[in-house]
Design a protein around this nucleic acid. Structure first.
Length: 195
DNA sequence: TGCCCGATTAACT
DNA sequence: GTTAATCGGGCAA
């Protein structure tokens, strides 16, 4: 049985936590699957929401690790992050893609497609499939409706530049499960192998 | 107050 | 390949 991820797991550098999340199981009310793509955002990173200090939107990032930071993207979608590092560091991991394993009929209905590869392959899609909204902003990740379990199998992880940014575009802080069909975008053929 | 633009997606040509 | 949808944050004035 997989071990639940603890506060201690998230109380480390966001750049250590992010690759360690690849292969972990994320369920919301028992719907979800295996994390296959994430991105790290550090508070010293110009691309991070926390870069310019706390606001009403990003205040959860400045709180303790192990909580969900949910924000609205492009006025339309929701995006889910896990807050990392000691309280106040304001760093988080963006959940970008999941390999769906649990509650597929529910996710198909919510997403309006039967194609498994389109259910959770993108940060907005993940939130629609798992029904994550601002209602989950600030929620603890070790309590219902969340269920977060560490990976048990060894996995091959690759890293590359993050997606959709205009700042710090060169930083290789996107992590993914090598050759997964459920990535929002493939990694370069020569992508750095992390583990 | 007004304006620009974004950690996106789907539906176009 | 391009673009509309849609809204809050951040900054200029």
């Amino acid at each position: 049985m997989n071990r639940p991820l603890t506060r201690a797991f998230f109380s480390r550098s966001v750049h250590e936590v992010a690759p360690d999340l690849i292969g972990a199981i994320l369920l919301v009310n028992d719907v979800g699957g295996r994390l296959v793509e994430v991105e790290a955002y550090h508070h010293t990173d110009p691309a991070a929401h926390s870069f310019r200090g706390p606001t009403a939107r990003n205040v959860v990032m400045f709180g303790p690790p192990g909580f969900a930071y949910v924000y609205r993207s492009y006025g339309i979608h929701w995006c889910l992050n896990f807050v990392c590092e000691p309280k106040g560091s304001a760093s988080a991991v963006l959940i970008r893609a999941i390999e769906p394993t649990n509650g597929l009929p529910i996710m198909r209905r919510r997403r309006g497609t039967a194609d498994e590869r389109l259910l959770c392959s993108g940060p907005g899609r993940v939130c629609e499939a798992l029904r994550i909204t601002h209602a989950q902003n600030g929620s603890a990740l070790n309590a219902p409706p969340f269920k977060l379990l560490a990976r048990t199998e060894s996995v091959e992880i690759v890293a590359g530049p993050r997606i959709g940014l205009t700042k710090a575009v060169d930083k290789p802080w996107r992590f993914g499960l090598k050759d997964s069909r459920f990535l929002s975008k493939p990694f370069a053929a020569d992508a750095i192998r992390v583990a």
